[in-house]
Every structure is written in C-alpha cells, then in structure tokens.
Design a protein around this nucleic acid. Structure first.
Lengths: 337, 337
DNA sequence: TTGTACGCGTTATCAG
DNA sequence: CTGATAACGCGTACAA
C-alpha cells in the first residue's frame, strides 16, 4: 500500500507513548498552547522531532472542518499571463498560510463544472476562478449564494465578487489608438472563447462606432487556441478575406503568431500592418517587432482577489456584500503599433 | 466559519436518514457495490442527487489511508517547458484518477524541503520532483529508501527513479554543431543554478576538449534568473569580457534575451553571433530570429515519469528496483545557428 | 441484502 | 495543568 507516510508515519499516539503523556497534552504542546508548561512542551517537542513526527493534515482538516486550501481554476496553464497570475496569487495566499489546489479547465465548461465538484469534495475553503465563459457564470453565483467564498477574475454579474481587468475598455482604447494613427481597417483576432467572451469585440466595435466606422464582420476572426501557431493560422484566415492595415490580437501569443505570419509573407510591421496584443507578457518587448500591448494588471488583480478572498474566508456566516472591481488596463506602446 | 461545504454539506448520514437505510448501505450503493440490489441503489442514488450529496474526500482519504493525490514540485511556474511538463503530467495522471498538488520552489533548496514536508503532511501518495539542484538530491533518495513513491525529473543518482533529459549530451552536441559550423569562440549562458547543475557546462566543456579547444572561463556566465531580461543582462556581461561568435543559452527564454541584446547592439544573428537555446519551447520559431534549440522531450518525460509513478503507487511493500532513464534530446535547427 | 461496531489521526469539550 | 471522551465523515470487517 503506497502513501508518503500513511503506513509508517508516527502519529500523536506514538509521541504520547514515547513521552508517557496523553494524546491531548501532546497535541496541545505541539501547537504551542499556553496551557502546557514549558518543561513539558520541551519534552514533547524533543520526542516529536526524534520520531520525525509530522501532523496529518487530512485528519486535522476533518476535525477542524477547514483545509486551509484555496482552489484556483484557470482556463489554461500555458498562457503566460495566467500562470503569472497564479504565481502572484500563490505568493500572497501562502503568506497567509493557505495552499493552492490548481485546476486547469482548458476552456471547457464541463471541465469547469468538474473542477467545482472536485474542489468541493476536497473541501477547499474557497475558490478563485478565471471563468471559461465570462457571460455564463450562473453556477458560480449560485455557489456564492450558498455562502461559499468565491472570487471571479473575469465576468460581470451582480451577486458575486469579481476582480477583473476591463477588457472592453482596453480593447476600445487600443482600437481608438490604432484609428488615431491612421491604421484602418483594423482586424480583430479573438480567442477561441471569443464568441462567449465578447468584451473585447464589444470594445472594438464601440471604438469603431464612436469614430463613425461601420463594423465589417469579415475583419473579426477567432483563433482556435491561444498559442503563436493559432495566431498565425488566424492571421492567414483573416488575410484571406480582408486587407487590414492593423491587427488587434486578444492575447500576446496570438500577436506573436501574427508577427510570424507577417514575416513569412513579407509584410512590414508596423508600416504595412500594425500589430497590437493583449496582456503585455514578459516576452512582448522581445518579439520579432517589440510588441505594443494592452497590459493585464496581473499583480493588482492577484492582490485584490486574495484580499477579497481572505475577507470572505474570515467572514463566517455573515458575508460581506458582493462587489465588482474593474481595473483599467494600460496601453503599453512599443514598435509594433 | 467558512468552508466550501464543511458546514452545510450533506453527508452519508443525511442520505441514510432520507432513505431510511443505514449509512453503510448508502455508502456501498453510492460506490456501486454489487452487494446492494439495483432497486435499493436507485433509491439511494436519487436521494443523494436530490440532496446534492458529494463524498467528503478528506474523510475518505483518512479512512482509506490514501489521497489519490500526487505532489508535483517544480522550480519555476513561469518556465514554459516546466508548465508544459506539468500539464502533460496532469493529463496522464488524471486519466488514472490522480490529482496534482503543485508546488513551486523558485529554485530554493529550503523551499524544496518545505515542499516535501507539506506534501508529506498532506499525505500525497507520491511525488514527482524537478529538483532545484541536480547534484544535491540526498533528501529524495532517503525518502525513496523509506519506500515513498518518488520520481525525479533530473539528476543522477543510484537508488532512486529518475526520468530525465540528457542535458550534458545535448549541450555537447549543440557545442559540437556550433564548432562544426565554424562559430568560435562559443559563449555559454547558464541558469542561476548553473553552479550546482553543471551538466550543461560539462557537456560544453567535453565538446571543446574533444575538439582540442581550451576552455576559457570568461566565456561562461550565469544568468540571475530564467527570463528574457535575465538573458539580456547575462549577454551584456558576457560581451563585456569576451568576444564570442556564438552563444549557447541553457534555456530558450534566456536565448530570446540574447537575441534582444544583439538587436539593440547591432549584431546580426547568426552572421555575427550564432545563438542556440535549450528546450525548444513553442515560441522558438517565432523569436526575432527563429531559434535553434536543444529540444526538451517534455511529453516523453511526462509519459515515462507518470508510468513509473503508477508502478510505484501500485507496488505496495515490494517496490521495484530504482532505475534511471536518460532521454536523448534532439537538436532543432532554425535560422539562429 | 442490510446493519453494527470499530478505526483512521486530529481537535474540542469537559472533567479531574 | 492534564486526561478521558466524543466528535469529524467515511470504509471495512463481521454479524444478523
């Protein structure tokens, strides 16, 4: 039978036997209770160390009815901005003694539901979710209504805590900028979930409308995935049906793929085609043409999300009213646009 | 008191009460035991569904003495090749019903020890580790001696299971290739842990020795981290003290930084300086100059590591003899070298 | 076919 | 200050 230490690991009982004290006293001593005198505590500590005792978190969780684990549900582990977010969340949450259970949904709603079930059965104390479909978050709202600590990193809905970047506003400002520089028409390469996460498309349309430019659906395509190769393929599709002078890609890896297509097809960036991405990942300045991008405020999002999660975690029965925080993303301009 | 469902979640007892059956029968029915007739099972299932019952994994783990969780310890979540590995491991392990508990050490040995303690206390059934220091894996070997299922993804030691890429061989072949193309002298930009993970440096030296070229220590520098910016900084340091005609970087992000330095300083790649990276991440073809790289066989490593882990997990008391598998990385040649 | 009793390792309550 | 005793939710013998 396997198990890191399930078979041979010393338990409180072993330490109790070794010291001649009761399990209870040992437990208290090990947790530094003032109720047990220093002398006794020292004996216990020494014995525990000698036996190489480690508390069994599983048993503790069962008794305490809390796990000090927070589930983190992401759509994609290969998306640099999401892993950066996860890392930031981990940093701040672990400072408070919480551990992360990370689940990747690959953008599937089914997998998202599965994740929720799994995390629930694993008794995590709360969940932080980057939802696959920003418009389809009813299952999360229901959870929150049942008083479960939950924070979303995207979407828009009453009755649930959301800390998000204003993708729509970012897309609008990026589009306005491109229009202002005379780069028209502007193509939009959206992510696979684009149909269901329409914020960026809407911001793009809003900017066009404000400038009196009619929306041409041939200029908006969806990439099958989120990688540079997906961006390249989408760009090829886009160029086959329109002649944009600029492209707004909804993620930097896609934009990198766009740059790759331009290189292979002899288009100069930004002279022939200006390119702008989303998120401003660490690689953006190192792209073939240094990439302009709409920065995703990952650190801010993480800090605020963790802050909120800690409030919910500590709130007990009377939870604070849900609130939505929209962070304004910043345009980072480099050579590509 | 928070908790996804710790306070209000229905338990077996609730389902038992609802059906008028005993806890035991309910438990058996829910797990599809042939001992309980279909009619009863149907009743139980319906009641469970109606109550929205979810088994408490914590309690189950405590009773079963196994968690069906595998700990995964990585040095860096932002390293694309490591997240790719994690993702592959997750895919294969979850197909067998195991979940991942991911821990990131940031390359610190202390954090690595901490991880081991945490995972142990969380009772994971096994651990897969990309060790921070490939030469310093005694603590892992000790664990394995105590019959804990553990698989390392790098390093070299008897008495423990290791599935790794032959970094030394890869570095040697890359260096030989660069020498063969007449690019000398060759600079080496190693990762922060380079001093303690000398495989690549050794392969580099071996190739030089075989070609009768003396090793010049000024040509070998260490990058402070693993990001493109770190690579750029390291390249600046290297160029300040030597005049290489080629650079071998021990990770693709570093190589991307090297390309960035070359661009900013007017060096043509590969004419003035040839550049080769390690890992062949998805971005490599999209670098400013399509990047030649020593491919890290992430999928192979993941498959073999998971396979081995499953063997160890199922082995019980009599564990198989530890074995080491070295995968040969492949040179992927593009424009940069 | 179903129910009873016990154990998993820990924490919490209440005596002593 | 310390020690029984009872949870926590579930799995597994063993009985009925």
């Amino acid at each position: 039978m396997p198990g890191m230490n399930l078979r041979t690991a010393p338990t409180l009982k072993d330490v109790a036997r070794a010291t001649g004290l009761s399990i209870n006293t040992v437990s208290l001593a090990l947790r530094g209770s003032p109720r047990v005198p220093e002398a006794t505590a020292a004996v216990v500590l020494a014995a525990a160390r000698k036996l190489n005792y480690t508390p069994n978190t599983i048993a503790r969780s069962l008794a305490e009815r809390k796990t000090r684990m927070v589930g983190v549900v992401l759509t994609d582990l290969m998306n640099p901005i999401l892993t950066a977010s996860a890392k930031a969340i981990e940093r701040h949450l672990s400072a408070e003694g919480y551990r992360l259970l990370i689940w990747c949904t690959n953008g599937s709603l089914d997998s998202e539901r599965e994740a929720l079930g799994l995390l629930r059965s694993r008794q995590v104390d709360g969940v932080i979710v980057y939802p696959a479909y920003h418009q389809d978050i009813g299952h999360f709202v229901a959870l929150r209504r049942a008083r479960h600590p939950i924070v979303l990193l995207a979407g828009r809905a009453p009755g649930i805590d959301i800390i998000a970047s204003d993708d729509g506003g970012g897309a609008r400002r990026a589009t306005e900028y491109l229009l202002g520089r005379g780069h028209a028409p502007i193509g939009l390469i959206d992510t696979a979930g684009g149909q269901r996460n329409p914020e960026k498309l809407e911001g793009y349309k809003a900017a066009l409308a404000a400038a009196g430019v009619p929306f041409d659906p041939r200029l908006a395509v969806n990439a099958p995935g989120l990688s540079p190769n997906d961006g390249k393929a989408a760009m090829a599709a886009l160029m086959a049906r329109a002649a944009p002078r600029a492209v707004l890609a909804s993620a930097d890896p896609l934009a990198v793929g766009v740059l790759g297509w331009c290189r292979e097809n002899g288009r100069r960036v930004p002279e022939d085609i200006a390119v702008m991405g989303f998120d401003d990942i660490e690689w953006a300045p190192f792209a073939e043409v240094p990439l302009s991008s709409v920065r995703y405020p990952a650190e801010d999002v993480a800090v605020k999300a963790v802050e909120r999660m800690l409030q919910l975690l500590g709130a007990g029965a009377r939870m604070p009213r849900p609130c939505t925080v929209m962070l304004e993303p910043e345009l980072v301009l480099r050579a590509s646009a």
